[in-house]
């Protein structure tokens, strides 16, 4: 009976349209775990608020994001949420602005046409892991970097790490690898690391592996273990602290640290900020940063 009552009230609220906001989320990256977690966080909080959310994935196609944003404008949604670099979708942002529809960034980037962007500070995350590596190896030794410059949020991590390693005269970056990510990033990173290990056979000739995200760090770990070189003290760090990485860090091997973005919290925060915006209280700042957590063996299991 109680259930029936709740459903009836819910249906009435939806039917009258009092609380139901119509929100479109558009991204080309839904296949990636990070994007999924961000969007699930948003959807969870949006469901609590009774919003109608339409999540649209364009399977990697950036121009299609613009197209789908235009479609959402045609549909006259109440707001659009994007998870993509806003600089690549200016016509879509402009279409929304012309129609007076607010657009908010969910782990996106900065743009004057966005209400705001809720995210973590990618520069800061890369700085934390790179400084950890530099300190752990005493500011001296050969480092292998795994980067991915075609994807702007990952590219900025590499830039920061370059600066930090470049600031240590005794640190030598022997390779800056861009792995093929079509297989998810682990397998190709492992193959690349195996080749680098083969080219540097002397124990101690590689002091650390800094990876711009977890998959290459896991691939490098597999390569080091398969080569029987796990005892050399090669330090590995990743970024994102995905479950597989946490397991590896908790095991206490070479993979020592990663950094966790609380994707769900970013999603929650985005929905809350959007609600405020729809109530006429836009945050008035270009970015809202959600805190991150440095993950080592001590807290990896949490």
């Amino acid at each position: 009976m109680k259930h029936l009552l709740t459903s009836t009230i819910g249906a009435l609220v939806l039917a009258t349209g009092v609380a139901a906001q119509d929100i479109a989320i558009v991204t080309p990256y839904l296949a990636q775990p990070g994007a999924q977690a961000l969007i699930e966080g948003f959807e969870t909080r949006a469901a609590e608020k009774g919003w109608e959310v339409n999540t649209i994935d364009t399977a990697g196609d950036v121009a299609a994001v613009i197209s789908r944003m235009e479609d959402a404008v045609t549909q006259n949604v109440d707001a659009i949420v994007i998870h993509i670099d806003p600089l690549q979708v200016t016509p879509g942002l402009q279409a929304a602005a012309d129609a007076g529809i607010p657009v908010i960034g969910l782990g996106a980037g900065n743009d004057p046409l966005l209400v705001t962007n809720v995210t973590t500070n990618g520069y800061a995350m890369a700085a934390e892991t790179a400084v950890y590596v530099a300190d752990r190896i005493g500011g001296s030794g050969n480092i292998v970097m795994f980067v991915f410059d075609p994807f702007p949020p990952v590219q900025i991590r590499g830039v920061v790490a370059d600066a930090i390693f470049g600031n240590h005269p005794d640190i030598n970056v022997i390779d800056r690898v861009t792995p093929d990510v079509q297989d998810g990033g682990i397998a190709d990173s492992r193959a690349k690391m195996e080749a680098i290990l083969a080219a540097n056979p002397e124990p101690g000739s590689i002091a650390a592996v800094w990876a711009a995200w977890d998959q290459p760090a896991l691939g490098a770990l597999q390569a080091i273990e398969a080569a029987g070189r796990e005892g050399e003290g090669i330090v590995i760090t990743g970024i994102d602290a995905n479950p597989q990485a946490r397991d590896a860090i908790a095991a206490g091997g070479n993979f020592e640290a990663s950094i966790a973005q609380d994707f769900q919290a970013i999603g929650f925060k985005t929905a809350d900020v959007l609600e405020e915006t729809l109530n006429g209280n836009a945050p008035g700042v270009p970015s809202i940063y959600v805190p991150t957590q440095f993950v080592t063996k001590a807290n990896a299991a949490n």
Partner: peptide, 16 residues
């Protein structure tokens, strides 16, 4: 046309 529309050029953007 793609690069003009997205106001950027990415080395994989035409793949689809």
């Amino acid at each position: 046309m793609f690069a003009a529309r997205v106001a950027s050029a990415n080395p994989t953007q035409g793949a689809g």
